[in-house]
Design a protein around this nucleic acid. Structure first.
Lengths: 139, 139
DNA sequence: CGAAATTCGTTCGTATGCAAATGATATCCG
DNA sequence: CGGATATCATTTGCATACGAACGAATTTCG
């Protein structure tokens, strides 16, 4: 019946992580309506490292094969990336930015920085650094 | 073309939040295979506050109307919750735990505590308290 | 070499998650 | 009272997310 310690959902790390993510995603959507966070992540990483295979790109932005496929398909449908077959390894699909995709990344990067700023606005610099360090530790 | 400051995805709060959530969800799945985190959240909150309307429950666990509906539908299909029409307000759908649902919450609560512990294992107590406080602040 | 194991991409099924539109009911307020 | 608003639940559409199973290609290793 009840020698129960109380269990408050609000004190569980999983719940708080979910709420923080929700707020961040909402801020992202307000500032960048044309792309989702995963789509932007794919473009930004592609701009950083250059053309790579689909699964490789997924690994770089922490998406499994099934998820990255959907993201890339939608980016391709919008003309932001190109897909070509790998010369040597016939299994691989090489993803690269189109001119439009490159332009989009350059245009959206300042907004992305602003989104990070807005999300961390409730914290001072020291707190933000601490938060990033602790989150990295539990990832 | 490039008076560009570098932009590292890994240093963006949104990306790190997503990665931390991924790890937590994976730990959850390893320990509680029969329910998802949102499903368990609904059951646990229901056990805490007693029967409530569907939307009310959603508000308590930060889910919009469309999302909570799906979660409750699946819990109902598995016999963990009951749905009854509200006496006074004919718009409302009252969600309550079944005996099976109550039993499930009691059985899974210790596992849920363990999941929180496992997720925060890389941190000491002080760090964990700080992390929770900072996450709450940006939520 | 050649069989076994691995990698790459795809597909299917299931489960969030949210915006927007809708119908039914309640509440507010002039 | 009664129309304007608001709330509750539902539905549709789209976009992650991941497990599992699959075929094709590549690598490993006996």
């Amino acid at each position: 019946m009840s020698g129960d310690r109380p269990y408050h959902l609000e004190d569980q790390i999983g719940f708080v992580l979910r709420k923080a993510s929700q707020r961040h995603i909402a801020i992202f959507a307000r500032h960048i309506g044309e792309l989702t966070p995963p789509q932007f992540a794919a473009l930004a990483k592609l701009a950083e490292v250059g053309a790579t295979s689909q699964n490789q790109l997924g690994a770089l932005i922490a998406m499994d094969a099934a998820t990255i496929k959907g993201v890339i398909d939608r980016l391709k449908a919008r003309g932001l990336v190109d897909l070509t077959k790998h010369d040597e390894d016939k299994r691989r699909l090489v993803v690269s930015l189109t001119a439009t995709g490159q332009e989009a990344v350059e245009r959206l990067l300042p907004l992305a920085r602003h989104i990070t700023e807005q999300t961390s606005a409730p914290l001072n610099e020291r707190e933000m650094a601490t938060l990033m360090r602790l989150l990295a530790k539990i990832s």
